[in-house]
Design a protein around this nucleic acid. Structure first.
Lengths: 206, 206
DNA sequence: GGAAAAATTAAACAATTGTTTAAATTTTGG
DNA sequence: CCAAAATTTAAACAATTGTTTAATTTTTCC
């Protein structure tokens, strides 16, 4: 009956690689089969259709995409420490998966996956208690009066965008990949200072 | 010989609309022809190929994309005023062309247009003297010690990303399009304060 | 070891892709 | 008005698309 787990996994790995770099519309199932080193029919044998295979890859990518938050948020740290750690961790993570932000946003943008985000993505984040911690800090005057949604947008902008804009930025400034990566590291430190300075009200008021 | 200018323009308008929303790979030439309301062959009659037509649209989009900077940069304002105006103008512009940032970054990301950015895009910006103005302000201690490249990355992150992340953000917070647009306006004001506070050294030092 | 089950393949499927051809229509200019 | 030029169309092109079928190979299990 069951035979070799690794074929199914090999297809998933190949599909991930191809979908990530070329997008759903930018590749054919034969591109993926070639990456696997085998027949097209095999993909449909294991995963019914290109679309189903894509959905699987997308779900996994979205999970990875959100995962890095959860570890930080569920730790026992002050809000400020969490923000700093989040920025650090996200940068480290996206350094290793630089295509991820573009893949997620582009896929959502093209309605390839239109359903509202499943609760199994969102609940783990809510369950960390991060939202309550934030509201409490705000009530106690430690944090500026700003909505959690705007904080999120601020963080995501500064953490996701740089990885999506690599080609534009390299062309715009005429710099190399290595130079861009240097800028990226500086950006990380800038963003940490920028955002914490803005969000957290210093109590050295006299 | 020459007949009706508007057919060529109608095709360009249709191509722009379709390419912008679906991307190069996400649409067929027949999609565009249908949008025009005429035959497929007509596209190749005016624009040789799908790829050539795309390049034309992309060039125009990139031009629009960078245009909003130039007007601000070449004005007679202080650096701080220019930064504030830039953020304002870019937000206003992208409110009317929300698909533009995603289109540009996605197209570059997929290597649809691989050539280095033509100088006719970059020179007008350099010619505004903005870079010199920035270095001078830095030398005079008005501005924090930060590279122009990092300032650019900071600005672009906070100005482009929100328009690219609409679907992600709406799903993430479970909010409507109108609510997102509200957040967007708040984000604009936050970013203005955030960035100017960070960049410009206040001389109220006692 | 050998039959049943699972995995893999090659081949074909209809549909769609970008492009071209050649004919038909419209516009131009004398 | 009428030929020549420009525009527009319908149809066909070969190539590629996602998927399915049926045959073949490999694995499983008694």
């Amino acid at each position: 009956m069951k035979r070799d787990q690794s074929t199914e996994e090999k297809i998933k790995a190949a599909a991930k690689k191809v979908f990530m770099t070329k997008g759903f519309d930018g590749c054919s199932v034969r591109d993926i089969a070639k990456e696997v080193g085998s027949n097209v029919a095999l993909l449909n044998y294991y995963f019914r259709s290109k679309e189903k295979l894509f959905e699987l890859i997308f779900e996994g990518a979205m999970s990875d995409f959100l995962q890095s938050m959860i570890a930080v948020f569920s730790s026992e740290l002050t809000l400020k420490e969490k923000v700093e750690q989040l920025i650090d961790k996200e940068f480290t993570f996206f350094m290793e998966h630089p295509e991820l932000p573009m893949f997620i946003l582009q896929s959502l943008h093209q309605n390839k996956t239109d359903a509202p985000m499943p609760s199994h993505f969102l609940e783990p984040i809510a369950n960390t208690g991060i939202f309550e911690q934030f509201e409490k800090a705000k009530a106690q005057g430690e944090v500026r009066d700003i909505s959690i949604r705007n904080v999120t947008l601020l963080l995501m902008s500064n953490v996701h965008y740089p990885f999506m804009s690599k080609k534009l930025t390299m062309q715009f400034h005429g710099i190399s990949s290595a130079e861009f990566d240097d800028d990226l590291n500086k950006h990380k430190e800038i963003v940490k200072e920028l955002i914490t300075n803005y969000l957290f009200i210093s109590n050295t008021k006299a």
